[in-house]
Design a protein around this nucleic acid. Structure first.
Lengths: 229, 229
DNA sequence: CGCTCTCTTGAGCCCGCTCAACGACAGTGG
DNA sequence: CCACTGTCGTTGAGCGGGCTCAAGAGAGCG
């Protein structure tokens, strides 16, 4: 690991897509106690960066958002992919601890954090929901630590595919929203290992790959489950 | 990785230590709204196991508690070491998602989870504290994912030592409460690699090891910090 | 049709793993 | 008192899974 796998996905975006749009809130009444609004982000666009003031937190509405941590030399880890319903970007301190970027075109609901503390008092039910979301996030994080620390490449990929299929799959197949680099940086692997492992899984009859490589058919779910350890 | 490092620390305990004691609460008035009590656990003793009903959650008072996840073949990952003040064991669902064991003789404060939801309503301040503890836990988990997924053995050990020194250290030295196996299973390494890396750090003048190997002097904190990436 | 981005595939290497042995203690019992 | 036993940590030798470096094939787009 001489260069320590610091290759990072180019996140450049076609210039025309860079401007974001503030969408009208679903119900734009101004007395919404959560002060939420909707916002759309184009593929590759940054929602917020590590170190930014954490004035807002977010709930994914559609599309996919990745939260990213970087080491000083560029090595990258994607903590999580956030799909519809997932809450992210809520911080204890005053700054965001990671960067959030749109994996594909994504729409999120934006909440003001300043309302957060008062909300816990005025609306304990909302606090409970938030606590529940935090606990889910923590569970995911713990599971992912086991994956990163103790699973083989094959097991990592199998776990990842089953998870994505559970969250996005239809009829035994998944359309992955992210590219190989993102998968690698999520699983603590290199892009080459991800590619090779998928190819091997095709040979083993566990999955089938569509032409683009983004659509994956789970040909042998039981076989994948065995690798899920 | 043919046996995939499934060697696990023996957690057997001298028979005489196995009985635990329920300590008198600090202020044993029965109107404590948090319904807390204190409990002591001997080295190696289990607080709760993965799959147990999650009726309580815990706050470490003294000593060290590890939370552990196991794969089916015995591979082990220690999510975290919990020291005085840390909250752990709070679940979203009805079951504990990991096992908690005392690393050394430890005392914890035990909270009833059944009080949890009502507490959020009756005592929003407590809810805020709990939320804050959850967010801290999440931050730690995210940092640890970067370590597990992207750091080298040397960097993992350096990060670990600095973290433990910040939490437990005095006068530039730390008395580690856990054995090498625990360190390995926390960092996603083997016990041999932990041992070899520490030895190499001694050779490099970064640290000094006491005779027992548990006490570590940070001889060159700046050097360790550089490895912290 | 050239340019860029993404993914795949090959060849070879190295970091951290496996397997193995040993030393230092602590506890235990004859 | 010392032999016996189990635990914990260290060290050595050798291997292999996943990495690095490199090249090339498709797909999408201006």
């Amino acid at each position: 690991m001489s260069s320590l796998n610091a290759r990072t996905a180019s996140t450049r975006v076609p210039a025309g897509l860079l401007a974001f749009r503030v969408l009208p809130a679903q119900r734009p009444q101004s007395d919404d106690p959560l002060a939420r609004r909707r916002q759309a982000f184009a593929r590759g666009q940054e929602l917020f960066a590590e170190g930014d003031a954490a004035e807002h937190f977010y709930k994914a509405v559609s599309g996919t958002v990745r939260t990213v941590k970087l080491l000083s030399d560029g090595r990258r880890l994607i903590d999580a992919f956030h799909l519809a319903g997932d809450i992210f970007g809520l911080e204890k301190g005053e700054e965001h601890r990671f960067t959030a970027e749109a994996v594909d075109d994504a729409v999120v609901e934006v909440f003001r954090r300043s309302r957060f503390t008062s909300l816990l008092h005025d609306n304990p039910a909302f606090g409970g929901q938030l606590m529940s979301a935090m606990l889910s996030s923590l569970e995911r994080a713990h599971e992912h630590m086991v994956l990163l620390g103790r699973k083989t490449a094959q097991e990592k990929i199998a776990t990842f595919l089953l998870d994505m299929a559970n969250r996005l799959g239809r009829n035994g197949q998944v359309e992955l929203p992210m590219q190989r680099t993102d998968i690698a940086d999520h699983l603590g692997l290199t892009i080459e290992t991800v590619s090779r492992t998928l190819t091997q899984m095709v040979r083993d009859g566990l999955i089938r790959l569509a032409a683009t490589g983004r659509t994956i058919v789970l040909a042998n779910r039981a076989g994948l489950q065995e690798l899920n350890a």
